[in-house]
Computed example of a mutant assay.
Amino acid sequence: MKKIINNPADVVTDALRGLAAAHPALLRVTRDPAVVAWAGSPVAGKVAVISGGGSGHEPLHTGFVGPGMLDAACPGAVFTSPTPDQVQAAAAQVDGGAGVLLLVKNYTGDVLNFETAAEFLDNTRTVLIDDDVAVQDSSFTAGRRGVGATVLVEKIAGAAAAAGADLDTCARLAEAVVAGARSMGLALTAPTVPHVGSPSFVLPEDEVEVGIGIHGEPGRRREPLTDASALVAALLEPILDDLPFVAGDEVLLFTNSMGGTPLLELYLAHGIAEELLAARGITVIRRLVGPYVTSLDMQGISLTLLRLDPALTDLWDAPVHTAALRWGM
């Protein structure tokens, strides 16, 4: 294992220290329990939007804290759910009196710990994110996993909250994004968790794992490594069939690096996906390309499609200022 770390047990704590140093005007970082909050929170009368999950997926979630997106994020240990006390501490820091929206990826630990925290909080709504079409069940989840759509939910719900929407409206919009988004990913290599020191699974040099999760979970199947056009089609076809997406739809296409895929390959894949969608009569009107939901050092990509309407498009376009995503400010 070659990584730029000190003690593997201190990776998350050390990274949070660096995050605080890099963004002192934007973020307020506490480490006992670990919470990353927007420095401008709480805002009186504004719905507080909170998410979180295991570390190792950066910039998700801590990189999306700031105006127009999350009010706070709760980072767990690597690939490990945050604890209920982290969620409670985050709510105590950012609740402006209009309620708290909890955005939770559908992994068993995340769901249980956010539910436990919600029992001790007033005026909360929880939205589960379950956009992964690769599996219906796994050892990590009860039902579909929450993956790439998480970024889109956080952005759109965060924009609604920033615009003054009430808690029910923010939750309804988050649920609309979940309902209209589908994702799938593939891996060329497995991630290496620092405290484990070896890859999560063994993948021969001439094979790819199709349908992987963001914690190094194995996928639907293994296939021989082939060209980019075939790989992108293998991801896009199940996504299109699942909702289904149809000719005339206007969509947001999110092409995501799993952490180890260079932008050269990512843009190549994105271009192929746009061509395939155009051939189906589906119009891409918004795009996001980059390493936004990663799995440590995994080489691979995921694709996410969100069916848009004017309201969701306006909220996507609304100003945002976070460490990892910013426009309009």
Rank of each mutant, 00 (worst) to 15 (best):
N7Y: 06
N7W: 04
P8G: 05
D14F: 05
R17G: 11
R17I: 14
A22F: 07
L27M: 06
L27A: 04
R31G: 11
A37L: 02
G40M: 01
V43C: 00
A48H: 01
G52C: 03
S55W: 00
G68N: 03
G68M: 03
G68Q: 04
A73R: 02
P75M: 05
P75Y: 08
T83P: 00
P84R: 12
Q88F: 01
A89W: 05
V94S: 07
G99F: 00
L102M: 14
V104A: 07
T108P: 08
V111H: 06
N123F: 06
N123Q: 13
T126Y: 09
L128W: 07
V147Q: 08
V153T: 14
E154V: 12
E154S: 10
G158I: 02
A159V: 07
A159N: 04
A159T: 06
A162G: 08
A165W: 03
E175K: 07
V178I: 07
G180W: 05
A181W: 00
S183R: 01
M184E: 04
M184V: 07
A187M: 08
T192F: 07
T192A: 07
V193G: 03
P194V: 01
H195K: 15
V196C: 02
S198D: 08
E209A: 13
I212S: 14
E217C: 06
L225C: 11
L225T: 11
T226H: 06
S229R: 13
G248V: 03
V251P: 00
M258K: 04
L263S: 12
E274R: 08
A278C: 09
T283R: 14
R287G: 15
L288R: 15
P291Q: 03
V293W: 02
V293G: 06
T294F: 01
D297H: 11
D297E: 10
Q299C: 14
V320H: 02
T322I: 09
A323L: 06
A323N: 08
